[in-house]
Design a protein around this nucleic acid. Structure first.
Lengths: 255, 255
DNA sequence: AAGCTTGTTCGATATTGTAGAACACACTGG
DNA sequence: CCAGTGTGTTCTACAATATCGAACAAGCTT
């Protein structure tokens, strides 16, 4: 390898963390199932699970181990400690109600976009994005909105880390094309996701900038057909822009 | 000790878990602060934090380490995977709206009561209980409702583990008195918390029983003065009982 | 620029996480 | 009813590795 980016990592801890992740992905699992899913001995998996269980991070019930309710505590805590959360939640709900579409507030961490708030309007599209769901930045409107306002080296770091995975035939997988798109969005003020993550689903995203730094983005997603109309092309962006602006003003006071 | 209940525990993992807990309690912390809060060397704390950060469980920003957004993902996942959550949320909201008080749905895990849903009415008391907050069972109305329907050895196990910590002068700290209270509540059908956790705050709790097992409880809390009126003494319990009943019916179908 | 903080890296030692075999237990099908 | 397979759990010996202290770099205030 050219760059050695393992500046000291505790392998046993990573084992535990991978167990936690696996219990999430597998929606609970038994000892042996985990052991050969993660290539470790049964006894090791058991020791880790026992330690996690003793500390309330994991529960053993229904013939399998599951993540414990302590995660609910930590999750709510982290969500609420994000300064954007309190400010954004009501705004997102209002936009969803007015437009009838599905509206998100997303923030970046570790190079991924995580949903902080989600609100559904009365004709919202179905989606697999819930609060806490993290997704790639290059194929979402919020992701692009955030990327476009991050320092360039950071953007490259993120793309190096996560790549530009293809989801649909519209997904932008070429780095230069993405940069063009970001530039265009920056000039325009808002960003698109034209069926780049799910076919049939289009989205519009607007960044939230505070004191020169992007703090996150608000986005709205709906069926491609509906969002392509002339009326929506002008109305929805301006609605999102004023929502983001309201949030920005609010943030500038709580500073 | 009479019983040796440490049947194999990984010390390094417990260190990591204690770091996670400390980052929550301290609302983020630096390396040295954590190190001497948890009696470990700076370098050890750093190694753990680096591992947690590399895996997205922790973020380093603002001159201190904080819990990362991955916890939001896990938290929402665990919350939603509780079968009670989906069923109870709308019911809890409805009761809160009708009564104007604060309403909870709580479930037991590891001997503590955790709030799954919280809804506020228009004249709700202030509280420090949010979704995910875990509290002792012996001094909450939901806790009593659940304890009263758990097998007796389990109850003793829980009380052994967590004790009967005193919060106010009304807190029941005597085990026999608690058993009497549980018996009375079981006959009555609903349970009280008479300023046993916070002075001035009274609560009424009702168990949710499915197929013979307690699954959780719904409770309503408000100022002691307001809940002591004759009207409330009859109206609120029956309202909660029918709410719990509706939930039970719902549960029996999704079985 | 000296003195205090931080956070970070490094290397040697002993603590401890690890694997594998053996265990108890539940279930299933002949 | 009892082999047979699947669990989860316990145990022990060994090698792997988490740990510590000291040394380091960087950011402060003085």
């Amino acid at each position: 390898m050219s760059t050695d980016d393992t500046p000291k990592t505790l392998t046993s801890i990573e084992k535990t963390l991978s167990i936690i992740e696996a219990l999430w992905k597998l929606d609970g699992a038994g000892v042996t199932e985990l052991a050969d899913h993660l290539d470790m001995s049964k006894s090791t998996a058991h020791a880790h699970l026992a330690t996690l269980a003793r500390n309330g991070f994991v529960v053993s019930g229904d013939d399998q181990y599951e993540l414990g309710l302590r995660f609910v505590n930590f999750g709510e805590y982290v969500k609420r400690s994000q300064s954007l959360y309190t400010v954004t939640q009501p705004v997102v709900e209002e936009v969803a109600e007015k437009t009838g579409e599905r509206v998100f507030c997303m923030v970046e961490q570790h190079g991924l976009a995580t949903a902080l708030c989600v609100a559904a309007g009365d004709r919202s599209v179905q989606t697999d994005i819930r609060v806490g769901t993290h997704s790639y930045m290059h194929c979402s409107s919020s992701g692009k909105a955030i990327l476009a306002h991050l320092p360039h080296p950071r953007v490259e770091e993120i793309l190096d880390r996560w790549g530009l995975k293809q989801f649909t035939e519209n997904t932008i997988t070429d780095r230069e094309r993405l940069y063009d798109e970001l530039r265009a969005g920056r000039d325009r003020g808002y960003f698109f996701n034209r069926e780049e993550y799910r076919t049939g689903v289009t989205a519009i995203g607007v960044p939230i900038v505070d004191d020169g730094d992007v703090r996150g983005a608000v986005s709205l997603s709906g069926p491609a057909m509906r969002l392509e109309g002339d009326w929506h092309q002008r109305d929805l962006p301006s609605r999102l822009l004023s929502a983001a602006n309201a949030i920005e003003v609010d943030l500038s006071f709580n500073r």
